[in-house]
Simulated scan of single mutants.
Amino acid sequence: MRVLVTGATGFVGGHLVPELLARGHEVVAMTRDADSYDAPAGVSVVEGDVLDPDLTLPSVDAAYYLVHSMQAGEDFEERDRRAARTFRDAVDAADIDRIVYLGGLGNEEDEDLSEHLQSRREVEHVLGDGEAALTALRAAIVIGEGSASFQIIRQLAARLPVMVTPSWVRTECQPIHVDDVVAYLVGVLETPETAGQTYEVGGPDVLTYQEILTTTAKLLLGRPPIIVPVPVLSPGLSARWLGLVTDVPVSVAKPLVDGLRNRVVVTDDSIRSIVDVDLTPFEESVRRALSESETVAERPVEA
């Protein structure tokens, strides 16, 4: 199958492209700057911007949409909306049969759903309004080297033996390893009956963010941190706090923190009977991510 991947240079897209190749698919990667993308052998590269109203897509059988605004700001929802509409219209113009989209978990009826989770849900609806059949996957935190969410978790665990944290540390989450997300993304592509359907995906473990931080610290340092939740700490203050103790910019930390108040747990696991994935336990996911992080750190810097 000939497949287009938008967001090929991102965290999930960077894992998806090689897996599609390994499964025998013909891959076309779309990026805004082809010269800056070190494409795997066998991948065709096209330049394109989902915010360009004149976006033209190549002829493919299916297209992955792995694009999200991860910056704070008053206009991020409009950017997400406009990008999704532009992409949907370009898909229709290119007569592409299917779109596969990775969005976020969260109860759609929750009036307190974070703005970024709301925006991801709106993108899902916009993409589904086109002529192509949409398959939407909804996931919580994706664990792996290169994940902004996991970068925050790892750096907090490494740098703070004692944490005064917001009450969101008690919120439940169902993290999933990046390899498992990719297995689902490829699996739905190869399963025709998933076209037009929405699925929730998650790993085998449901944990609070406190348990996630504690487990990561034990694996990283051999000891858990002392975590002291406080009842009131606004998303803005939480983001600034993360900006002080991690390398994640405040503009990225704020939308991530804003979503931590929402319980993101799978309530419908029907995909398990359709796409068979051997899910990775959380501890093993963290071990793999930490191992990958060490490998990246040890690589020599190229001139």
Results as ranks from 00 to 15, higher is better:
residue 157 A to T: 06
residue 152 I to Y: 01
residue 189 L to R: 05
residue 190 E to Y: 02
residue 129 D to A: 14
residue 137 L to T: 03
residue 199 Y to D: 00
residue 156 L to N: 10
residue 191 T to I: 04
residue 132 A to F: 04
residue 142 V to F: 09
residue 169 V to L: 13
residue 181 V to Y: 05
residue 135 T to F: 12
residue 122 E to W: 00
residue 197 Q to H: 13
residue 142 V to A: 11
residue 160 L to Y: 09
residue 171 T to G: 08
residue 157 A to R: 11
residue 169 V to G: 04
residue 178 V to G: 06
residue 149 S to L: 07
residue 195 A to E: 08
residue 201 V to R: 06
residue 133 A to T: 02
residue 141 I to C: 02
residue 126 V to E: 10
residue 146 G to N: 12
residue 136 A to Y: 01
residue 162 V to S: 07
residue 196 G to N: 13
residue 146 G to Y: 12
residue 123 V to D: 10
residue 155 Q to E: 15
residue 161 P to G: 13
residue 190 E to G: 14
residue 175 P to M: 09
residue 121 R to K: 14
residue 161 P to H: 04
residue 201 V to Q: 11
residue 148 A to S: 15
residue 159 R to M: 09
residue 168 W to A: 02
residue 139 A to D: 09
residue 179 D to C: 05
residue 188 V to S: 11
residue 155 Q to Y: 02
residue 127 L to D: 07
residue 136 A to S: 14
residue 189 L to E: 04
residue 165 T to H: 10
residue 188 V to N: 07
residue 153 I to W: 05
residue 149 S to C: 08
residue 121 R to Y: 02
residue 171 T to Q: 13
residue 133 A to K: 12
residue 180 D to Q: 01
residue 163 M to Q: 13
residue 148 A to R: 13
residue 140 A to Y: 04
residue 128 G to V: 03
residue 173 C to G: 04
residue 183 A to L: 08
residue 187 G to T: 05
residue 142 V to I: 15
residue 147 S to K: 02
residue 165 T to E: 07
residue 162 V to A: 11
residue 122 E to H: 14
residue 171 T to K: 01
residue 131 E to W: 05
residue 124 E to S: 14
residue 152 I to K: 05
residue 126 V to N: 02
residue 144 G to I: 00
residue 189 L to D: 08
residue 170 R to I: 05
residue 128 G to R: 06
residue 124 E to A: 07
residue 130 G to V: 06
residue 169 V to I: 14
residue 152 I to Q: 01
residue 134 L to V: 13
residue 148 A to L: 14
residue 200 E to N: 03
residue 196 G to Y: 06
residue 132 A to E: 07
residue 151 Q to G: 09
